[in-house]
């Protein structure tokens, strides 16, 4: 009993105890607040906004309780703030990269050019966004690798969001032999697109003659598809075009080379020889 009385009379120990209880309670309450946010807003918000709201609730509640704990220990909040300001400058100089990533992260989240669950392409990396964190963005590539991209490099470089709009266009570059009639080629291609149910009716398929190539008439044929069907369309349309060209007798040429022997050229002498197994015995 005297021990407890002595402890209770010990003011500094008591305040440390109170501070510890405040921090612990703050931690528990912050977790509860984060869960409450998820339960209340979960169905209404996107994964990205939900994660932001949850973190906001968690750190907000925790910060309040930490500040109270500090006061309990006798620190003046104003002094702490001032010290934090000085500290920030010092840390800022010491860890420029981290600070830059942190600020970039804020801009990335504010700009909302992509969200959790989107598929983005950065440089040569394409993958699904798993999380947008303070320092980096985490991706899962299609061959199931985990890629961490620093926020700073995302801010600086070109990022393509593949899942932003509901429909996508596939540009197929192909060449046909010089002997073919371009209008007929166009008709065959349009018929292929019309028959393919994955290919959208509207916006209509696009046929562009891109030029007289080295050994072919170069054509761009662009078709639209739902984002989800993009890969399926890409494969099915190529196969269907090959089949339709074969059926219509349209040639997809190999590279041609014409050889000349000089200015006053004469044709190369060419002699036709039977293959060895068909040559007569004599």
């Amino acid at each position: 009993m005297p021990l407890i009385d002595a402890l209770l009379a010990n003011e500094p120990l008591l305040s440390i105890l109170r501070a510890a209880i405040l921090v612990a309670a703050g931690f528990v309450l912050a977790m509860l607040a984060s869960r409450l946010v998820r339960r209340l807003l979960g169905p209404r918000l996107s994964a990205q906004t939900l994660q932001l709201a949850r973190r906001g609730a968690f750190y907000g509640v925790l910060a309040l309780f930490l500040a109270s704990a500090m006061r309990e220990l006798g620190f003046s909040l104003a002094v702490i703030m001032g010290a934090a300001g000085v500290l920030t400058v010092a840390i800022g100089f010491a860890s420029q990269t981290t600070a830059s990533n942190l600020i970039s992260g804020l801009f990335l989240i504010g700009e909302r050019s992509f969200e959790i669950g989107d598929i983005i392409r950065v440089g040569s990396t394409t993958g699904e966004v798993l999380s947008i964190d303070a320092l980096s963005v985490k991706l899962r590539t299609f061959d199931n690798l985990f890629v961490r991209i620093p926020n700073e490099s995302l801010i600086k470089s070109e990022v393509t969001t593949l899942t932003r709009f509901p429909i996508r266009r596939f540009d197929l570059m192909l060449g046909v032999a010089y002997k073919e009639d371009i209008n007929r080629v166009q008709e065959v291609l349009m018929a292929v697109a019309e028959r393919n149910t994955l290919c959208l009716d509207e916006p209509p398929p696009l046929f562009v003659f891109t030029g007289f190539g080295e050994s072919s008439l170069d054509i761009q044929f662009s078709v639209w598809a739902r984002r989800e069907n993009f890969l399926a369309l890409r494969n099915s349309i190529a196969a269907a075009i090959k089949a339709a060209f074969d059926q219509a007798g349209i040639e997809i040429p190999f590279p041609h080379r014409s050889l000349y022997t000089g200015e006053a050229t004469r044709p190369f002498p060419v002699v036709l020889v039977d293959p060895p197994d068909r040559q007569s015995p004599e």
Binding site: P166, N196, L200, E202, P203, A225
Partner: peptide, 10 residues
């Protein structure tokens, strides 16, 4: 049935 897009833009 073939898919199609109906709207003012893509």
């Amino acid at each position: 049935m073939s898919d199609t897009w109906f709207g003012p833009n893509t």
